[in-house]
Lab assay of single mutants.
Amino acid sequence: NQASVVANQLIPINVALTLVMMRSEVVTPVGIPAEDIPRLVSMQVNRAVPLGTTLMPDMVKGYA
């Protein structure tokens, strides 16, 4: 099963993503693939993302 990107903490809106904010985990439904974590660094989410939430492509500005 493919690992997805999961919030490692509350990720506020309009804050640049850092490695420490994200972890990889096998979850259902599948979200952004874990291998895209380096690409996500410095991008921003378009809504607050609670701890443990799977990041979906539509949550990250400029990802999709």
Results as ranks from 00 to 15, higher is better:
residue 1 N to T: 15
residue 1 N to W: 07
residue 1 N to K: 06
residue 1 N to D: 15
residue 2 Q to V: 10
residue 2 Q to L: 13
residue 3 A to Y: 12
residue 3 A to F: 07
residue 3 A to L: 12
residue 4 S to T: 04
residue 4 S to W: 02
residue 4 S to N: 00
residue 5 V to C: 06
residue 5 V to R: 02
residue 6 V to P: 01
residue 6 V to Q: 03
residue 6 V to W: 01
residue 6 V to D: 01
residue 7 A to N: 01
residue 8 N to D: 12
residue 8 N to G: 08
residue 8 N to R: 08
residue 8 N to L: 05
residue 9 Q to F: 06
residue 9 Q to E: 10
residue 9 Q to W: 06
residue 9 Q to L: 13
residue 10 L to N: 13
residue 10 L to R: 11
residue 10 L to H: 15
residue 10 L to F: 14
residue 10 L to G: 10
residue 11 I to S: 01
residue 12 P to M: 06
residue 12 P to I: 03
residue 12 P to S: 14
residue 13 I to R: 08
residue 13 I to F: 07
residue 13 I to G: 09
residue 13 I to H: 15
residue 13 I to E: 15
residue 13 I to P: 14
residue 14 N to L: 07
residue 14 N to I: 03
residue 14 N to Q: 08
residue 15 V to S: 13
residue 15 V to G: 09
residue 15 V to C: 05
residue 15 V to N: 08
residue 15 V to F: 11
residue 15 V to R: 11
residue 15 V to W: 09
residue 16 A to H: 12
residue 17 L to V: 04
residue 17 L to C: 03
residue 17 L to Q: 00
residue 18 T to M: 07
residue 18 T to Y: 03
residue 18 T to E: 13
residue 18 T to A: 10
residue 19 L to R: 11
residue 19 L to M: 13
residue 19 L to P: 13
residue 20 V to T: 13
residue 20 V to D: 15
residue 20 V to W: 11
residue 20 V to F: 13
residue 20 V to A: 14
residue 21 M to A: 05
residue 21 M to K: 00
residue 21 M to R: 00
residue 21 M to T: 03
residue 21 M to P: 00
residue 22 M to T: 00
residue 22 M to K: 00
residue 22 M to G: 01
residue 22 M to I: 13
residue 22 M to H: 00
residue 22 M to L: 15
residue 23 R to P: 03
residue 23 R to Q: 05
residue 23 R to I: 05
residue 23 R to C: 05
residue 24 S to Y: 07
residue 24 S to E: 10
residue 24 S to N: 06
residue 24 S to M: 14
residue 25 E to P: 00
residue 25 E to R: 05
residue 25 E to W: 06
residue 25 E to N: 07
residue 25 E to F: 05
residue 26 V to A: 10
residue 27 V to Y: 03
residue 27 V to R: 08
residue 27 V to L: 05
residue 28 T to M: 10
residue 28 T to R: 04
residue 28 T to D: 15
residue 29 P to V: 07
residue 29 P to M: 04
residue 29 P to F: 03
residue 30 V to I: 13
residue 30 V to E: 15
residue 30 V to T: 14
residue 30 V to G: 10
residue 30 V to A: 11
residue 30 V to S: 10
residue 31 G to R: 02
residue 31 G to Y: 02
residue 31 G to H: 01
residue 32 I to D: 01
residue 32 I to Q: 00
residue 32 I to P: 00
residue 33 P to A: 08
residue 33 P to G: 06
residue 34 A to T: 07
residue 34 A to D: 08
residue 35 E to H: 10
residue 35 E to F: 08
residue 35 E to M: 08
residue 36 D to E: 11
residue 36 D to P: 01
residue 36 D to K: 10
residue 36 D to G: 06
residue 36 D to M: 10
residue 36 D to N: 11
residue 37 I to H: 01
residue 37 I to M: 14
residue 37 I to T: 09
residue 38 P to K: 12
residue 38 P to E: 11
residue 38 P to L: 10
residue 38 P to N: 13
residue 39 R to S: 07
residue 39 R to E: 05
residue 39 R to C: 15
residue 39 R to Y: 11
residue 40 L to G: 00
residue 40 L to V: 06
residue 40 L to E: 00
residue 40 L to M: 08
residue 40 L to K: 00
residue 40 L to T: 00
residue 40 L to I: 14
residue 40 L to Q: 00
residue 41 V to G: 00
residue 41 V to I: 14
residue 41 V to M: 06
residue 41 V to P: 00
residue 41 V to S: 02
residue 42 S to L: 10
residue 42 S to D: 13
residue 43 M to Q: 09
residue 43 M to C: 06
residue 43 M to F: 10
residue 43 M to K: 12
residue 43 M to D: 04
residue 43 M to W: 06
residue 44 Q to A: 13
residue 44 Q to D: 04
residue 44 Q to P: 13
residue 45 V to P: 03
residue 45 V to T: 14
residue 45 V to M: 08
residue 45 V to R: 00
residue 46 N to L: 13
residue 46 N to M: 10
residue 46 N to Q: 13
residue 46 N to K: 10
residue 47 R to I: 06
residue 47 R to C: 08
residue 47 R to N: 11
residue 47 R to W: 06
residue 48 A to I: 13
residue 48 A to M: 08
residue 48 A to L: 11
residue 48 A to P: 13
residue 49 V to S: 02
residue 49 V to I: 12
residue 49 V to M: 07
residue 50 P to W: 04
residue 50 P to M: 07
residue 50 P to K: 10
residue 50 P to Y: 07
residue 51 L to D: 12
residue 51 L to A: 09
residue 51 L to E: 14
residue 51 L to R: 10
residue 51 L to P: 11
residue 51 L to K: 11
residue 51 L to F: 11
residue 52 G to R: 04
residue 52 G to E: 04
residue 52 G to T: 00
residue 53 T to I: 08
residue 53 T to F: 08
residue 53 T to H: 15
residue 53 T to G: 12
residue 53 T to W: 10
residue 54 T to S: 04
residue 54 T to N: 01
residue 54 T to F: 03
residue 55 L to G: 01
residue 55 L to N: 01
residue 55 L to R: 00
residue 55 L to I: 14
residue 56 M to S: 06
residue 56 M to E: 07
residue 56 M to V: 07
residue 57 P to H: 08
residue 57 P to C: 07
residue 57 P to Y: 08
residue 57 P to F: 05
residue 57 P to R: 07
residue 57 P to M: 05
residue 58 D to F: 11
residue 58 D to R: 06
residue 58 D to K: 09
residue 59 M to V: 06
residue 59 M to P: 02
residue 60 V to Y: 01
residue 60 V to T: 02
residue 60 V to I: 14
residue 61 K to D: 11
residue 61 K to W: 08
residue 61 K to E: 12
residue 61 K to R: 13
residue 62 G to M: 08
residue 63 Y to T: 03
residue 63 Y to D: 03
residue 63 Y to I: 04
residue 63 Y to A: 04
residue 63 Y to R: 04
residue 63 Y to F: 11
residue 63 Y to H: 04
residue 64 A to S: 14
residue 64 A to R: 12
residue 64 A to E: 10
residue 64 A to M: 10
